[in-house]
């Protein structure tokens, strides 16, 4: 099933979905040396975000978070693509400086449908996300 979206940073990626219903703070919330979510009580606590299509509502926390995304990318630990409900500047800037494809503003239907492990295609340049069940 194909969905329209808005491009925040260009690029193309295919991979496995990792879905969080809660916001993610990269600074303090993700370990930059492992790619594992370390925020206490976070629904994805203990889970590795590396090489996934990371789907979450929006970023939160300190603007240093942009550098954490870059740090992950330089170590090969970043997500393959980022899909947000609403993009905000911390994650957007992080994606741009790290060359990670990023889109937002997908319909609610997409978030109802998508689940961990599903195969996802993010075609940011053409503002489209496809879910292959």
């Amino acid at each position: 099933m194909k969905f329209k979206c808005r491009k925040i940073n260009g690029g193309y990626a295919e991979g496995e979905a990792l879905v969080s219903n809660e916001a993610i703070s990269f600074y303090g919330g993700v370990d930059p040396s492992t790619g594992i979510i370390i925020e206490k009580g976070h629904p994805l606590e203990g889970i590795k975000i590396s090489n996934k299509i990371l789907i979450f509502p929006y970023g939160k926390g300190s603007t240093v978070g942009s550098y954490i995304i870059l740090r992950l990318a330089r170590r090969g630990l970043a997500p393959k693509a980022i899909v947000n409900l609403y993009a905000e500047p911390i994650v957007a800037v992080g994606a741009i400086i790290s060359e990670i494809p990023m889109v937002d503003q997908l319909p609610k239907k997409f978030f109802n449908l998508v689940n961990n492990g599903m195969k996802i295609i993010v075609d940011a340049d053409n503002e489209a996300v496809e879910v292959i069940e």
Binding site: Y86, P89, V93, I96
Partner: peptide
């Protein structure tokens, strides 16, 4: 180029 990409993304958001 990177600087412009950043401003455009923030402007869009």
């Amino acid at each position: 180029k990177k600087a412009m990409e950043i401003l455009v993304a923030i402007g869009k958001i």
